[in-house]
Computed example of a mutant assay.
Amino acid sequence: MFFRYFLPIAILSLFLWTRCGSHSDPPIAFTPLPESLPEQLCASDTLNDSYPFVYPEQILRYDSLLIVFDFLDRESVFHVFSDRDGRFLYSVGRKGNGPGEVIMPTSPTIDPTDRSLALWDARQKRLVRFRLPASSNDSVRYLDYCQNPSNSSYFSQIIAHDGSYYVAGHVDPLRFGKLEQDSVRVLYSDYPLLTSEDAEANRSVWNYAPYTRITSDGKRMVQSCYIGAALELFSIDNDRIHSDTVLAITPPRYRIVEGTRPRWVGTIDETLLGVLDVQISDRYIYALISQQSLTSDPLAAEGSAYIHVFDWSGRPVCRLKLSRLIECFSVDESRGLIYGMAFDEGSGEYQLLRINFNSNDFRS
C-alpha cells in the first residue's frame, strides 16, 4: 500500500491555496453491507507468477490485452500481457522527463477511439499518451497531447471517453471537469458530507486515493472513497453531472496533516480502509472493499477476498468470495472473468490471477 500513502503526500507538494467551499447539508448516514447478501464462490488460477512486479496498482483490459500499471517500477510503469495465457508482451512508459517518459504517473485510462493508453503526469503537468499496437507487427507509438493547462496542479485523475478527457480534481471548485485545449472547464464541485469537521477535511477524505470510472456510453460515473468505504453514483447528460446515490458504508477515521493548506487528511491506526479498487460495466458496479485497519492485519488491509456488486440504483446484488486476497482487478463481464493481482507471501512476489464468476446469477 506504499502508493496509497505516497501519492497523496506527493500531491500535497503541488497544492495552491484556494477558498474553501461550504456545504449546509447534514452528514449522510452510514449503512453497513447486508450480511444476507447472496454470495458466489469464485475459483481462480494463476496466469503469471514469474514477472517481477514492483507494486502493481491497477489492471486495465483492452481487446485481448491486460495492462498492469506498476507505479514504483524504476524502468517502465506499464507491463502488457495476453489475457488468454498471461504471456508477457511488452512494457511501455519509461521513467524520465523526455518525450514519452513519465515521472509521477497517476491513474491511467484507455481511449478506444484511437487505441490510446493515457495518464496524467502530476510532476510534469502533462497528459502522456501511447497508441497501443493493433497487431503483433505494430509497435507502441508515443502521442503527446497537451502540457500545462490552467489549474493542472489540482488534477488527480483523467478519464477518457469518446476522444475527450474528463478530469477529477482535488481543490475547490474543481471536483470534475473536462480537459480542453489549454484549460479545464469545471463541471461539478460538490461533495457529500462523510464528515462534519469542515468542508476542507470532507473534500480531502473523498480525494485520498479515489478511483473514478465512466461507463462506455458516457452516461454514468462512479467515484470511490478509500478512507472509510463509500461510493458516489452520478449520471451524465451533455457534460451536466448529477449525483444520484451515495453508498456510505464505513465512516472515515483520520487525522489532519499538520501545516497543510487546504487541510489534508491522513490515515491513523483506527482507519478502516475502504474501496481498494472499483470497476464498472453498463449493468453493474464492482467494488473491492477492505474494511480492515492497517494495525489489525496489515496484509489483509492491503487486499480483500470480497468484491461487492451493486446495480446502478445503488442496490447490492451479490458478493463475490475469492479464493485469494487481491489488491486490484479488472472485469470482463461478458466472459465471466476477473483479472486480479495477488501478493504471494511464500515467494514474496505478485501473481496475476484469472477468476471465474457468473453475472447471470446476480439477484435481479
Results as ranks from 00 to 15, higher is better:
A10Y: 08
S290A: 15
R315C: 12
D49E: 15
R185Y: 00
D83T: 07
T212A: 05
S313P: 00
P108A: 11
R335F: 05
S116V: 06
P56K: 09
Y145K: 08
T195A: 14
P252H: 10
S164M: 08
T46L: 08
D70K: 12
E258A: 11
N202A: 06
Y306A: 08
Q279R: 11
R240N: 14
L194W: 09
S82A: 11
N148H: 13
I28G: 01
G93K: 04
S139C: 09
D114W: 14
G303C: 02
L14T: 09
C328V: 12
A229Q: 02
A168L: 12
L231Q: 03
S281M: 04
C20Q: 12
L117A: 10
P173L: 02
T271Q: 09
W17H: 07
P316N: 11
I307H: 01
I268S: 05
F78P: 01
R175Q: 01
I285F: 02
F71E: 14
F15A: 14
I289Q: 04
G96E: 10
T215P: 00
E35G: 00
A248S: 15
I11T: 02
I241L: 15
I307G: 03
R74F: 09
N148W: 08
L143R: 07
R255E: 13
C225R: 08
I249G: 06
S50H: 14
E232G: 00
L60T: 04
S216P: 00
S91Q: 11
F362L: 09
E57R: 10
L65F: 14
L127D: 00
C20Y: 01
D237S: 15
C318F: 08
S290G: 05
S22I: 08
L132G: 02
V171W: 00
S189T: 14
S136V: 14
T267P: 00
D63S: 14
L119W: 07
S13L: 13
S216A: 13
T245C: 15
I110N: 04
N97E: 13
S347H: 06
D49H: 11
S304K: 04
D144I: 01
F78W: 10
F362Q: 07
D332R: 10
E258T: 07
G303P: 01
G98L: 12
Y188R: 05
I236F: 04
T260P: 00
S156A: 04
S91V: 04
P210T: 04
S189D: 13
G100V: 08
F176T: 00
P105F: 05
M341W: 12
L247N: 11
Y284P: 00
D83S: 14
I11D: 10
Q157W: 01
D172T: 05
P173W: 02
I326K: 12
L233H: 02
D332M: 09
Y142F: 15
D73F: 11
G177S: 02
R283T: 05
D83P: 01
S359L: 06
V186H: 01
